[in-house]
């Protein structure tokens, strides 16, 4: 098989699992997670420095070859997301940005209208914009029109590990949206990431499921393999699904014949 390249924002990726840096009991496992999963893209958030206590710097734990994908978490409006994105770019780690605009604190569902607005502003400023959205065709189309580099529909609410609850809506996005579809949020098990990839998703972003596993490095390896397996299954062209049995062995030459 020719090398399966995933190109986004001018970068050629050979791995389709994006990872995150949140919720680790110890950030020191992050290099192991990156290595075990093969991931080449990793998310971070931007926050105020704690002036009262000296906490560790997560950047010290991120391997240098990783493409950084800062998010705009904490933003409740498009304007706040734009502000965070510009600050993130000023850190000098590239111009990729994951738009997260959320004002609902219980389910952390993204505001599609504000997300599309922020996408438009930032795409015009040259950002590689990856908006986190509900699995909604119209929101996805608005993000396409706004200049997004990919669309990132949720599988389930952030951090829930509930799986690919939005599978039918994600399937529609895969069918209808010409940009890469990266399933982000809610995926709790490697089998669910595998399923998303089998359906034709271009990549998955997994943070909580890896970070909160008892052995994050082993789980990262499992997710890396699951994403690869799902991708290969998709590329291989799965066979048809039938409602009745279709024999796999020949229906002639039985011992009892004649």
């Amino acid at each position: 098989m020719n090398e399966d390249i995933f190109e986004i924002g001018g970068l050629k990726l050979t791995n389709r699992l994006f990872t995150g840096t949140g919720k680790y009991a110890d950030d020191a496992v992050i290099p192991g997670v990156c290595e075990a999963s093969g991931s080449q893209v990793i998310t971070v958030a931007l926050r105020r420095v704690d002036l009262e206590s000296d906490t560790g710097n997560v950047m010290d734990c991120i391997p240098k070859h990783m493409q950084l994908l800062p998010n705009t978490s904490g933003a409740r409006t498009a304007d706040e997301a734009v502000r965070i994105a510009r600050l993130a770019r000023a850190m000098g780690c590239g111009d990729w940005i994951k738009i997260e605009v959320i004002s609902d604190n219980k389910y952390l569902l993204p505001d599609g209208y504000e997300t599309a607005k922020a996408t438009e502003i930032l795409a015009k400023e040259g950002f590689v914009v990856l908006p986190y959205v509900n699995a909604d065709l119209y929101v996805a189309r608005a993000c396409v029109d706004a200049g997004a580099a990919a669309v990132m529909p949720l599988g389930a609410p952030i951090g829930t590990n509930r799986g690919l609850k939005t599978r039918e809506m994600v399937r529609i996005l895969i069918d209808e949206i010409d940009l890469p579809i990266i399933v982000d949020a809610g995926i709790g098990r490697p089998s669910e990431a595998c399923e998303a990839m089998e359906m034709g998703a271009d990549a998955c972003l997994v943070n909580t499921a890896i970070a909160t596993a008892s052995d994050p490095v082993m789980m990262a390896r499992a997710f890396g393999r699951a994403v690869k397996a799902g991708r290969e299954a998709y590329l291989s062209g799965p066979g048809a699904i039938h409602s009745h049995a279709v024999a796999s062995s020949p229906l002639t030459g039985f011992l009892s014949e004649g």
Binding site: A45, L46, R48, N57, M59, M91, N207
Partner: peptide, 28 residues
């Protein structure tokens, strides 16, 4: 306004200024 890192040394603070000091932290 974002302060470019190459002018940190020449940017003087004034009474009443509002300063935000931010950095990357773990996030998904």
């Amino acid at each position: 306004d974002i302060v470019s890192s190459d002018v940190f040394g020449s940017t003087l603070l004034n009474d009443g200024d509002h300063l935000e000091i931010l950095r990357f932290v773990g996030g998904g």
